Lab assay of single mutants.
Amino acid sequence: NMTTNERRVIVPADPTLWSTDHVRQWLEWAVKEYGLPDVNILLFQNIDGKELCKMTKDDFQRLTPSYNADILLSHLHYLRE
Score class of each variant (00 low, 15 high):
residue 68 N to Y: 03
residue 27 L to I: 08
residue 32 K to L: 08
residue 66 S to Q: 11
residue 14 D to L: 01
residue 77 H to S: 10
residue 36 L to W: 04
residue 68 N to G: 07
residue 1 N to I: 12
residue 4 T to Y: 10
residue 64 T to R: 01
residue 34 Y to A: 05
residue 58 D to N: 05
residue 67 Y to I: 06
residue 37 P to T: 14
residue 12 P to L: 02
residue 62 R to I: 13
residue 23 V to L: 01
residue 81 E to P: 07
residue 76 L to C: 06
residue 36 L to R: 01
residue 47 I to V: 12
residue 37 P to N: 14
residue 30 A to C: 07
residue 43 L to A: 11
residue 81 E to T: 03
residue 81 E to D: 15
residue 3 T to Q: 10
residue 14 D to A: 01
residue 29 W to H: 14
residue 4 T to L: 10
residue 67 Y to S: 14
residue 70 D to K: 08
residue 23 V to N: 02
residue 55 M to K: 03
residue 59 D to W: 01
residue 63 L to S: 02
residue 77 H to P: 02
residue 7 R to V: 09
residue 10 I to A: 15
residue 44 F to W: 08
residue 81 E to K: 09
residue 28 E to K: 10
residue 50 K to V: 11
residue 25 Q to H: 09
residue 77 H to A: 13
residue 58 D to I: 14
residue 55 M to W: 08
residue 61 Q to T: 15
residue 34 Y to T: 03
residue 49 G to N: 00
residue 27 L to T: 02
residue 9 V to F: 14
residue 22 H to Y: 01
residue 33 E to M: 07
residue 60 F to P: 00
residue 44 F to T: 03
residue 26 W to L: 01
residue 37 P to R: 12
residue 30 A to T: 09
residue 54 K to L: 07
residue 21 D to A: 12
residue 69 A to Q: 02
residue 48 D to E: 08
residue 2 M to F: 09
residue 21 D to Q: 08
residue 24 R to Q: 14
residue 6 E to L: 12
residue 59 D to F: 02
residue 52 L to R: 01
residue 69 A to K: 03
residue 55 M to I: 03
residue 24 R to H: 05
residue 57 K to G: 06
residue 3 T to G: 11
residue 50 K to Y: 07
residue 55 M to A: 01
residue 1 N to H: 04
residue 24 R to E: 05
residue 21 D to Y: 05
residue 19 S to T: 08
residue 16 T to S: 09
residue 64 T to M: 12
residue 51 E to W: 04
residue 48 D to T: 13
residue 7 R to H: 07
residue 55 M to Y: 07
residue 49 G to M: 01
residue 37 P to W: 07
residue 21 D to I: 10
residue 60 F to L: 08
residue 36 L to G: 02
residue 33 E to A: 07
residue 63 L to Q: 03
residue 43 L to R: 10
residue 6 E to G: 13
residue 14 D to E: 03
residue 66 S to T: 07
residue 29 W to L: 05
residue 57 K to E: 11
residue 9 V to H: 13
residue 17 L to Y: 08
residue 25 Q to N: 05
residue 71 I to P: 14
residue 68 N to T: 14
residue 4 T to I: 14
residue 38 D to Y: 04
residue 64 T to V: 10
residue 8 R to V: 02
residue 68 N to P: 12
residue 34 Y to W: 07
residue 36 L to A: 02
residue 60 F to S: 02
residue 20 T to R: 09
residue 76 L to W: 03
residue 20 T to K: 13
residue 73 L to M: 12
residue 64 T to G: 06
residue 74 S to N: 13
residue 12 P to Q: 05
residue 53 C to M: 13
residue 27 L to E: 00
residue 15 P to Y: 04
residue 67 Y to M: 06
residue 24 R to G: 08
residue 33 E to C: 03
residue 31 V to Y: 02
residue 77 H to V: 08
residue 40 N to Y: 04
residue 58 D to G: 08
residue 16 T to E: 09
residue 56 T to P: 02
residue 45 Q to F: 04
residue 69 A to F: 04
residue 39 V to A: 05
residue 52 L to D: 02
residue 78 Y to M: 15
residue 4 T to G: 10
residue 33 E to P: 00
residue 68 N to F: 02
residue 33 E to K: 13
residue 7 R to P: 13
residue 76 L to F: 02
residue 53 C to R: 03
residue 55 M to G: 01
residue 38 D to E: 08
residue 56 T to S: 14
residue 13 A to V: 11
residue 41 I to K: 12
residue 39 V to T: 11
residue 19 S to V: 01
residue 44 F to V: 02
residue 81 E to W: 03
residue 53 C to K: 03
residue 27 L to S: 00
residue 6 E to S: 07
residue 59 D to L: 01
residue 60 F to E: 00
residue 7 R to I: 05
residue 33 E to G: 03
residue 23 V to E: 00
residue 12 P to E: 11
residue 65 P to Y: 15
residue 26 W to E: 01
residue 57 K to W: 07
residue 64 T to E: 05
residue 69 A to M: 05
residue 21 D to M: 08
residue 9 V to M: 15
residue 38 D to V: 01
residue 49 G to F: 01
residue 22 H to F: 01
residue 11 V to G: 13
residue 71 I to G: 05
residue 22 H to S: 03
residue 10 I to N: 15
residue 3 T to M: 13
residue 54 K to W: 03
residue 56 T to M: 04
residue 64 T to Y: 07
residue 42 L to I: 07
residue 45 Q to A: 12
residue 9 V to N: 14
residue 19 S to Q: 04
residue 68 N to C: 05
residue 28 E to Q: 09
residue 78 Y to G: 15
residue 1 N to W: 05
residue 60 F to A: 03
residue 73 L to N: 05
residue 58 D to Y: 12
residue 72 L to W: 02
residue 3 T to P: 06
residue 75 H to K: 14
residue 10 I to G: 15
residue 77 H to I: 15
residue 79 L to N: 04
residue 39 V to W: 03
residue 27 L to W: 00
residue 48 D to S: 09
residue 72 L to Y: 01
residue 51 E to D: 08
residue 21 D to V: 08
residue 18 W to R: 01
residue 68 N to V: 12
residue 56 T to Q: 07
residue 10 I to T: 15
residue 20 T to Y: 04
residue 36 L to P: 00
residue 1 N to S: 08
residue 27 L to M: 06
residue 38 D to N: 11
residue 9 V to C: 13
residue 21 D to W: 06
residue 65 P to F: 15
residue 59 D to R: 06
residue 31 V to N: 05
residue 56 T to Y: 03
residue 23 V to A: 01
residue 46 N to V: 02
residue 15 P to L: 03
residue 46 N to Q: 06
residue 71 I to W: 04
residue 2 M to T: 10
residue 20 T to G: 05
residue 80 R to Q: 14
residue 30 A to V: 08
residue 5 N to M: 14
residue 43 L to P: 06
residue 23 V to K: 00
residue 18 W to T: 00
residue 50 K to A: 13
residue 4 T to V: 10
residue 6 E to Q: 12
residue 47 I to M: 10
residue 64 T to N: 12
residue 70 D to A: 05
residue 40 N to S: 04
residue 70 D to Q: 10
residue 59 D to V: 04
residue 66 S to N: 15
residue 73 L to R: 10
residue 29 W to T: 14
residue 15 P to Q: 02
residue 76 L to G: 01
residue 69 A to V: 10
residue 61 Q to H: 15
residue 5 N to E: 14
residue 7 R to C: 07
residue 28 E to C: 10
residue 59 D to Q: 10
residue 28 E to Y: 08
residue 30 A to P: 00
residue 46 N to M: 04
residue 23 V to D: 01
residue 57 K to D: 08
residue 63 L to I: 14
residue 27 L to P: 02
residue 15 P to S: 02
residue 71 I to C: 13
residue 75 H to V: 02
residue 12 P to W: 06
residue 19 S to L: 02
residue 79 L to H: 08
residue 14 D to M: 02
residue 67 Y to L: 10
residue 31 V to K: 14
residue 47 I to F: 05
residue 74 S to L: 05
residue 19 S to M: 02
residue 38 D to G: 11
residue 59 D to I: 02
residue 2 M to A: 03
residue 66 S to W: 04
residue 8 R to W: 00
residue 46 N to H: 09
residue 31 V to H: 06
residue 26 W to K: 01
residue 14 D to C: 08
residue 47 I to H: 04
residue 35 G to P: 03
residue 55 M to R: 02
residue 76 L to N: 01
residue 44 F to R: 04
residue 14 D to F: 03
residue 10 I to R: 14
residue 28 E to V: 10
residue 37 P to E: 12
residue 28 E to F: 04
residue 18 W to A: 01
residue 79 L to S: 06
residue 81 E to Q: 12
residue 66 S to E: 13
residue 70 D to C: 02
residue 1 N to D: 08
residue 34 Y to M: 07
residue 30 A to R: 03
residue 81 E to H: 15
residue 41 I to G: 08
residue 44 F to I: 02
residue 37 P to Y: 11
residue 12 P to G: 06
residue 9 V to I: 10
residue 66 S to M: 04
residue 11 V to Y: 15
